[in-house]
């Protein structure tokens, strides 16, 4: 019941998708319509998992007065306050959308934008023409950067833009096709291993 049934569910669910997509009868019976529906809606009913997990961690930190417990308190207030607000007035409500637009959006976009600084620092410290291969990589990166940004055409005529386009359209596109083919084969092999019960990481955790 504990290991076998989940393995059977895994295999049957995977086979149902294959049956639903590749077989006429699967289409006719609307196998995937039904399972898509179950799949998409079931997430909504498990949505509190994230809130509960964070609550357990941070309530513990507050109760034990761990170092920096005040931040845990701030997190919990923000989380519960915003969740309750969203439930009362929908996420589109006046206060909920105010928080979304003026707190969540600036925070999210600024955190991700921090990487501009680290990539600048990495370019200076780690990007070295140590070998011929590394030199090819480095030169391509510079041609693409200056070929895509308008300044390249101003400094080096539009030849650099054409070169960047050519690299992207042919040498690079072909390389990424090789990556994609290799990636697809890998993904299918992993999917097959999951279906056959050889890959069982998702059954780990609680015993």
């Amino acid at each position: 019941m504990r290991k076998e049934v989940p393995m059977i569910i895994t295999a049957l669910s995977a086979l149902a998708a294959v049956f639903g997509n590749f077989f006429w009868l699967g289409h006719h019976w609307g196998v995937m319509d039904l399972l898509d529906n179950w799949f998409n809606r079931s997430f909504a009913f498990a949505a509190l998992i994230g809130v509960i997990n964070l609550s357990i961690i941070h309530i513990n930190a507050i109760r034990r007065r761990k170092e920096n417990w005040v931040y845990s308190l701030i997190l919990l207030i923000a989380m519960y306050g915003y969740a309750i607000l969203g439930l009362i007035q929908t996420t589109d409500g006046p206060q909920a959308s105010w928080i979304y637009n003026n707190v969540l959006t600036p925070l999210d976009s600024t955190v991700f934008a921090l990487l501009a600084f680290y990539i600048t620092s990495a370019s200076y410290r780690a990007f070295r023409a140590r070998t011929v291969e590394a030199t090819v990589l480095l030169v391509t990166a510079i041609v693409v950067m200056l070929g895509v940004a308008p300044i390249g055409a101003v400094l080096f005529t539009d030849k650099i833009s054409s070169l960047a386009q050519w690299l992207l359209n042919y040498a690079n596109a072909g390389t990424y096709r090789a990556f994609s083919i290799a990636g697809s084969l890998g993904a299918m092999a992993t999917a097959l291993r999951i279906t056959l019960g050889l890959e069982r990481a998702h059954l780990g955790g609680a015993q």
Partner: peptide, 19 residues
Amino acid sequence: RYPMSFWVGYGAGYGLAFS
């Protein structure tokens, strides 16, 4: 593990069906 098996299994099935 039951819902998790459904999610992972169905996701793997998608990989097989659509890749």
